[in-house]
Amino acid sequence: MSVIVIGGSGFIGTRLCIRLSQAKIEFEIIDKDPSIFFPGEALKADVRRPLVHNSSSDPSAFINLAAEHRDDVRPLSLYDEVNVDGAKNICNLARAKGVNKIIFTSSVAVYGFAPLGTDESGAIAPFNDYGRTKWEAEQVYKQWQSEYPECRCLVIVRPTVVFGERNRGNVFNLLKQIASGKFVMVGNGSNRKSMAYVENVAAFLEYSLGFKPGVHIYNYIDKPDFTMNALVAYVNKLLGRSAEIKFRLPFSLGLLIGSCFDFVASITGKKFPISAIRVKKFCANSVYESAIESTGFIPPTPLMEAIEKTVRFEFIEDHKGEQVFYSE
């Protein structure tokens, strides 16, 4: 088997390529950024433009991790160019190379502010351009699969927020605030959050290489779902601190502060870690269910162990100067 990992230089892609390497699965990376871990396997290319693959060996599967995903992307047209037009270019390359398997990492953002326990049958109601374009990209891949449904395999994986060592996204920012001792809880902290550990997501993407023709859609969540209060208490315990949350702000005040930062950002053009949408996302429930268990997949790392490994790597051990990945 030979796999092309599109977006393989990023956070999830790097962990996936490490797993493929350990499993002796041949792979190549297509990414607009170089791969620090696998420079010899990387081809620089942008999914916004038609893709060309000139290797003498024909790949048996594409795994697409390339995405425009931050909350503050400008211009907004980048979401469509990368996520939707990129999907079209990948499908065209798959047609040209005779590839019959595509694994696409979408997102639970397609559900928007979803009801508790939303599974793969949940209503599609994205609230931002990221979720909208992920959903539209799914339709592009479904069209590709429908051309030869008996031969082509499409796997759509919708992860919840992904965290882990070396990531500089929203979960890291939360953990960093807790570790600094300056964390302020916005809201009452009773809202629950589904999370996904990067190693487990990568392991499921590798596992799905064995799926048969058809369309396979799965949310990806690692259980259990923590309340914000419980998550903060657990992290404080790992850091040898009291579980007590010292500072709290009402949601309305937190939202006002986020809106003020949005106003300043609109005037100055600067990007800030606080915004109204991030306050809303922080205080919202985001609890999902998944049918992955029916596939026989077993995550290699339990969630509480994954949080401990991340906290230890980032805030207890010394890894200064090592490669990190920036995302939401």
Rank of each mutant, 00 (worst) to 15 (best):
I178D: 00
F204T: 02
Y218K: 07
L205H: 06
A179K: 09
V198T: 09
G164P: 11
H216M: 13
G169S: 12
G210I: 03
Y207E: 00
K176M: 08
N191W: 10
N188R: 13
G164N: 05
G189H: 03
G214Y: 09
V161A: 14
C151A: 15
L205Q: 04
A196H: 03
N167T: 09
N170F: 11
R166Q: 14
F183M: 04
V186Q: 12
G214S: 11
K176V: 00
A202F: 07
N191I: 12
V184W: 05
A179V: 04
I221Y: 08
N200S: 07
N219C: 11
P159K: 02
F163C: 03
G214D: 10
G214P: 08
K223V: 12
M195P: 01
Y218E: 09
R152P: 07
Y220T: 08
E199V: 08
K176A: 15
R168A: 06
F172M: 12
L175P: 04
Y220I: 09
R152H: 09
S194F: 03
N173E: 15
R158S: 01
I217S: 14
R158T: 02
Y207A: 01
K193E: 06
Y207M: 00
N191Q: 14
Y220A: 14
N170W: 10
V184P: 07
R168Q: 13
G164I: 04
G210H: 06
L209N: 06
F172R: 11
G214H: 08
S208Q: 06
E206L: 12
V184K: 12
R168H: 11
F172K: 08
A196D: 04
H216F: 14
N173H: 14
V171F: 13
C151T: 14
G164L: 03
K212D: 14
M195C: 07
G164R: 01
L154D: 01
A179G: 02
F183L: 06
N200C: 09
R158H: 01
S208V: 08
E206S: 03
C153K: 02
L175S: 04
R152Y: 06
V155C: 06
Y220D: 07
G181H: 10
D222C: 08
G189M: 05
G214C: 11
Y220K: 12
S194T: 03
H216L: 13
F172E: 10
Y220W: 13
N167K: 07
N219G: 10
N167W: 00
K212Q: 15
F163N: 02
V157W: 01
H216W: 15
N170D: 12
F211W: 03
M185W: 02
Y197K: 06
N170G: 11
V157P: 04
L174S: 10
N170S: 15
K223F: 13
S208K: 05
C151P: 00
A196G: 10
N167S: 15
K176Y: 05
V171D: 02
S194W: 07
S180W: 08
C151G: 02
S190V: 14
Y207H: 13
N219L: 07
N200Y: 05
L154A: 05
G210T: 11
P159Y: 08
R166W: 04
V157I: 15
K193F: 07
R192Q: 14
K212P: 02
